[in-house]
Amino acid sequence: MTRHTRLRSLAFAFGLAAFGLAGGASAADVSILNVSYDPTRELYKAYDEAFAAYWKEKTGDTVTVEQSHGGSGGQARAVIDGLPADVVTLALESDIDAIAANGGKVRKDWKGQFPDDSAPYTSTIVFLVRAGNPKGIKDWDDLVKPGIQVITPNPKTSGGARWNYLAAWAYANAHDGNDEAKTREFVTALYKNVPVLDTGARGSTTTFAQRGIGDVLLAWENEAFLALNELGPDKFEIVVPSLSIKAVPPVAIVDANVDQKGTRKVAEEYLNYLYSDVGQKIIAKNYYRPIKPEAADPADLKRFVEVKLVTIDDPQFGGWAKVQPAHFADGGIFDQIYKPSK
């Protein structure tokens, strides 16, 4: 290739990028950006296609949904710093709260904008163990035994990891009769058994599955199913503990961005459609627990095991507004776990 044609193709590439960023040329073409966390890649890949078909049929317009995935906290920070997301679909309420609090791109009362506290799907935390469960891991108290290696990501950088941590906390709390000192001891013992703190849920799964580290992986239920399917059903099995937490990944409109881009209508419909029968079916198929189980395929529902779930609004936690600063802020309870004892 001559230098000239290469320059031209680069200019072309630049043009393409600019074209994409500008959000399309014709009025009938619209593009929105969904900024999401790590484990939703497969879910939104399927859902975006379904939504584009629906939108085409309804309005005749072509909608392109751009996706960005990463650790929930980092993604929220990117939106705060100006990533032009139309909608955010994150792992934690507190991450969307942070967007609302820092720069106000999301309205403060975002939780009331969509049904069920703006959470069209839920999940929970389960264990993934090696085939045959060689260490006989049945429940949370098996995880604090000496010699057991637990793989979980860092709650500071991963949304899923916070749910893992809170699930362990809820179990310990229930067994210690609400004795906070004992609960702390339990959670501390658990994290002492963690040899690697990856920065994200996907990193932890890879560490556990590909690198062969650890005896048990704490994971989102959907992540555990996916890992099972993608990485070998004969190599791992899922263990459901006696008690876990109801993990609620919420969605929200990024008001400042949709108003600037004029995409509010399509963005709102995008999130609304998650609650439709089609949306709920796709959700269940991708191993998330649908908020309207009646809309989902019964065969998909059968995969979810009945488990006692504690919610974040349980008195021991008191909602994200309390949990976030108490447990995960700088110098919070999680940080104290790792503080070397003197």
């Binding site: 994409g20 960023l21 751009e66 996706q67 995935h69 990533l83 996907r202 996916l226 990485l231």
Partner: peptide, 24 residues
């Protein structure tokens, strides 16, 4: 980068994304 698929992902970022999708 913002990691927008097909738009602001460079090759090294694409490597990380694929790796995180279990597409080793």
């Amino acid at each position: 980068s913002g990691k927008i698929r097909g738009q602001t992902n460079t090759m090294p970022l694409q490597v990380e994304i694929l790796y995180n999708e279990y597409s080793y």
